[in-house]
Design a protein around this nucleic acid. Structure first.
Length: 575
RNA sequence: CGGGACGUGGCGCAGCUUGGUAGCGCGGUUGCUUUGGGAGCAAUAGGUCGCAGGUUCAAAUCCUGUCGUCCCGACCA
């Protein structure tokens, strides 16, 4: 393609609305334009990158036996009622009515639709395993679209679904996907980590997220450099030091703490109330039922862990009036001592974090404003409904596997694979017959990659002050041939000739034939991020052109007649 | 949904406090010069100041409402 004819509306200045690097650069380099909040048009360069991503994914999906479908984005609401997800996903789904008044939704994902095909067409264990996938537009009414292509309301997802007769089959399909995803992201030139994750609204037993480490991400992952342990904070577990309580048999004693509301204030107030010796008491509403969550004073609750533990749909912090009416005191003086969950109390459950196990002589609120207890012995004084892991891991915590120091880092989710089990096959009645003649629900898995998000993640990870630096496998073109002074007929003719030769050799070339000044063209060339550039300039009279690598800025002189061979090695070889 | 900021030529912004002729840079067009890191000079086109209502002799500017966009949080495959 000739640049003079390609639509690449580059911008000299950063758009006011953009914050993250990928958003700014994709805008400036003429890849995307906004249409509304979380809605973007992909311009020709972006579409070329998108197709490269899609092709890599398609090849790897086909390699594990995936079969490509295209399912509708527009769904009858009934299917979502049937699976029970209209309730859990309801707010994020775009809903509409047709002219007859029938209710429709735009798909946020396609478990229901693939399952509806599977239940009609799969009837015997002999027909599985199956791996079905598609590239389809997903619509999500996100609470807050942000960061350009990173969180949008309409985007392309590769979603695939596996159908097996038993857990072993599912494990195999899951592992095939995991390996395929690793190949996909590696081929896409991305540094990524695979982490254990929460299954959330998808349901199911296990899931792995593929994360790119970047501050532009919204997730936190816990990493152990020692042993490679990696998990989303929503799932990560850390070891905790055992604390031997001094004076373990101290008796319960109420004492005044006027005006002391926080763990820190209390710790400063008295030596025996060090944060590690306090019990933090939180009141949460789980599907509108009040529960108490008790953690060590220096620990913090991870609400996803609590939600997953409870299997609840909606978990939120209780409001001030709810707290006072249930506990008889305000936040700051709350505690679990004496809280009864039986006989009609407003608190239905008391959950204790594992880090409190065996602790005694602790300090906690007395459920009487401006009073606390000391000498609290957990097992003796607090009625536990259940113990669990509720605390959020922090940098510096100990790895449960090797004891090494854990690091918590921001990251961006580019892929997520789930073992769904029979969550959908049971509710939607998708069964096969096994050898014995009995019906068994199909074991399903679901696997997703956000295509445009992957593009944006690549930019987040690979750019400099001058612009984008695409990995070779994603770049819209392999090389730019820049005719520095396109007014010189010889130079232009040499550029045209090289352009034709390179294309004939199967190399994707962008010929910068614009009648612009050199500096302007160099800046534009750098901005759009093509990995290699050939400058046809002053040395042409000696038969020499310059080959410049975008990432490093390194350049070397090459005889123009050798160039096609050099490219066959450098470019084709690297693809 | 809570908090904050912002809507003025294609892009980035000033003007608003103190009401009266709408301005700058980039970009566009034309001409001349220039040609290895976002050129110079000259000329020129382009704006219902988000929208609606109100106050006023007069509103980009003051008031009310509304829509939109971005950021933080809640939240979220």
């Amino acid at each position: 393609m000739r640049w003079s004819q390609l639509f690449i509306p580059t911008l000299k200045e950063d758009p006011a609305a953009a914050e993250t690097a990928s958003h700014k650069l994709l805008m400036r380099a003429g890849y995307i334009r906004p249409l509304g909040s979380g809605i973007y048009s992909l311009l020709p360069l972006a579409q070329k990158v998108r197709l490269k991503v899609i092709n890599i994914i398609r090849e790897e999906m086909n390699a594990i036996g995936g079969q490509e479908f295209v399912l509708p984005a527009l769904h009858p609401t009934e299917l979502w009622e049937e699976s029970g997800r209209l309730g859990t996903m309801g707010d994020i789904m775009f809903r509409l009515k047709d002219r007859k008044g029938a209710e429709l939704v735009l798909g946020v994902t396609h478990e229901e639709i693939f399952t509806s095909i599977a239940r009609n067409a799969l009837s015997s264990y002999r027909q599985v395993p199956q791996i079905w996938y598609q590239f389809q537009t997903k619509f999500r009414d996100e609470l807050r679209p942000k960061s350009g292509l990173l969180r949008v309301r309409e985007f392309t997802m590769k979603d695939s679904y596996s159908f097996d007769v038993d857990a072993e089959g599912l494990d195999k399909s899951f592992d095939l996907h995991k390996a395929a995803y690793e190949r996909i992201f590696t081929r896409a030139g991305l540094d990524f980590v695979a982490v254990e994750a929460s299954s959330g609204a998808m349901g199911g037993s296990a899931s792995t997220e593929f994360m790119v480490l970047t501050d532009a991400g919204e997730d936190l992952v816990v990493l152990c450099r020692g042993c490679g342990y990696a998990a989303n904070v929503e799932k990560a577990v850390a070891a905790f030091e055992t604390i031997e309580s001094k004076n373990a048999h101290a008796s319960l004693e109420k004492f005044p703490t006027p005006g002391l509301k926080t763990v820190e204030q209390l710790a400063n107030f008295a030596d025996f109330a060090a944060t590690k010796n306090q019990i933090k008491t939180l009141v949460y509403a789980a599907d509108d039922e009040l529960v108490l969550v008790l953690l060590r004073g220096d620990h913090e609750l991870n609400t996803t862990k609590l939600t997953d533990f409870l299997g609840a749909e909606n978990v939120r912090a209780a409001e001030d009036q709810e707290i006072f009416s249930a506990m008889g005191a305000h936040a700051g003086s709350l505690g679990g001592v004496g809280v009864k969950t039986s006989n009609g109390g407003k608190i239905k459950k008391v959950f204790l974090d594992n880090a409190l196990k065996g602790r005694s002589n602790m300090v906690t609120g007395a459920n009487d404003d401006d009073f606390h207890y000391k000498g609290v012995s957990i097992e003796r004084d607090i009625e536990a409904s259940a113990w669990g892991d509720f605390r959020g891991v922090k940098t510096g915590d100990m790895c449960i596997k090797c004891g090494g120091a854990l690091a918590v880092e921001k990251s961006l989710e580019i892929g997520h694979i789930f073992k769904l089990g029979t969550r959908y096959s049971t509710t939607m009645n998708a069964h096969v017959l096994i050898a014995s003649g009995e019906k068994t629900p199909i074991m399903m898995g679901s696997y997703g990659i956000g295509v445009e998000r992957l593009m944006a993640a690549a930019v987040e990870r690979s750019h400099d002050k001058k612009g984008i630096i695409w990995p070779k496998s994603l770049a819209p073109y392999d090389v730019i041939v820049n005719v520095i002074n396109s007014a010189e007929e010889e130079a232009l003719a040499a550029g045209e000739k090289l352009y034709a030769e390179l294309r004939a050799a199967g190399i994707e070339v962008l010929l910068d034939d614009r009648a612009e000044r050199p500096g302007f063209k160099f800046a534009d060339n750098d901005l759009i991020g093509i990995p290699l550039r050939v400058n046809i300039g002053k040395k042409l009279k000696d038969g020499i052109v310059e080959l410049v690598e975008r990432a490093t800025g390194e350049n070397k002189d090459v005889p123009i007649h050798n160039l096609v061979d050099v490219f066959k090695q450098n470019v084709t070889g690297a693809l």
